[in-house]
C-alpha cells in the first residue's frame, strides 16, 4: 500500500535527511517509525503525503507514484491520508465541530453528509460532548483527539501520526494510543512516528527504526554500531 524504494531526500542542497530508505507498509497494518529527534521521521511522513518529494528513488502510495503524480492529483491523494501532529494544528477561531467539519467542507463534501460524518468522527474519539468548545478550552489530550477526528473524518486508508503524544501528559497519552489502536482495528493503517520506545506494543506489526536518515533495526537507533552494516532491518 505504501512502498519506499531507495528514497533519498536532502534539504537546503546538502543536508541529507533521508538516505536510500526502503520499506513497505501493508494494508491495515500498524507500524511504528522510531528514531531520535532529527533522525528523519517527519521527513518520511511528509514524503508519504507528498508535501515534499524524493530526490532519488520513488514512493508508491496506494497506486500514486511520486515520480508521475500530477500537482492537481495531490489533493485527491491527501483525502485518503489522515495526518496528525505533535502541535495538533487546530484552527483556534473555530470550535471542535467546525474544526472537524472543515476537512469535509474544503474538500467539497455535500452538506447532507458533513453533519453526519463530523458527528460520527467526534463520537469515535469520544469528543461529541465538547463539540461546541474552542481549542483553547481543551487539554492537550482533548485537542489531539479532535485532530484525530479531523484526520479520520474522510475515512482515510492510513493515519500518519507524527509524535502524537509529544504535547500530551502521560495520563492522556494512553488514551491517545488506545484510540490509535482502535482506529487500526477498524481497518485503517496507522504509521506512528515517535522517539519513545515505551509506547511500542509488543504485538505490533512492524517497527521501523531510523537513524541519521537511514533505515536501521529498531534496536540500533541509539547504538554506535556502523549503521551501514545494520540497515535493511526489515
Amino acid at each position: 500500500m505504501i512502498e519506499f524504494s531507495n528514497v533519498s531526500k536532502s534539504f537546503q542542497g546538502d543536508w541529507l535527511a533521508l538516505k536510500n530508505a526502503s520499506f513497505k507498509i501493508n494494508k491495515g497494518e500498524f507500524a511504528f517509525l522510531i528514531g531520535k529527534s532529527g533522525a528523519g521521521k517527519s521527513t518520511i511522513m511528509k514524503l508519504i503525503y507528498l508535501d515534499i518529494f524524493p530526490e532519488d528513488g520513488y514512493i508508491n502510495i496506494a497506486g500514486y507514484d511520486s515520480r508521475t503524480i500530477k500537482r492537481k492529483d495531490i489533493p485527491f491523494l491527501r483525502r485518503k491520508i489522515g495526518v496528525i501532529f505533535q502541535d495538533f494544528k487546530l484552527l483556534p477561531d473555530r470550535n471542535v465541530y467546525d474544526n472537524v467539519a472543515f476537512a469535509l467542507k474544503v474538500t467539497g463534501e455535500s452538506y447532507r453528509n458533513i453533519r453526519k460524518k463530523t458527528l460520527d468522527a467526534l463520537a469515535s474519539v469520544k469528543m461529541s460532548h465538547k463539540r461546541n468548545s474552542y481549542p483553547y478550552q481543551l487539554s492537550g489530550g482533548e485537542q489531539q483527539k479532535v485532530a484525530i477526528a479531523r484526520a479520520i473524518v474522510r475515512e482515510p486508508f492510513i493515519l500518519l501520526a507524527d509524535e502524537p503524544t509529544g504535547n500530551v501528559d502521560p495520563e492522556n497519552t494512553a488514551g491517545i494510543m488506545n484510540l490509535l489502536f482502535e482506529i487500526n482495528t477498524l481497518g485503517t493503517a496507522v504509521l506512528m512516528a515517535t522517539h519513545d520506545h515505551s509506547l511500542i506494543k509488543k504485538d505490533i506489526n512492524q517497527v521501523i527504526g531510523i537513524r541519521d536518515g537511514k533505515i536501521v533495526k529498531p534496536e540500533n537507533i541509539f547504538s554506535k554500531l556502523d549503521i551501514e552494516e545494520t540497515e535493511s532491518a526489515l
Binding site: 492537481k72 489533493p75 491527501r78 494544528k89 472543515f102 476537512a103 474544503v106 474522510r154
Partner: peptide, 17 residues
C-alpha cells in the same frame, strides 16, 4: 497562513483554497 496550510493538508484543491 495556518488555515491555508491545513486546507492544503486535508486535500482541498487549489481553487477551493
Amino acid at each position: 497562513k495556518d488555515q491555508i496550510d491545513i486546507m492544503d493538508l486535508v486535500g482541498a484543491t487549489e481553487s477551493y483554497i
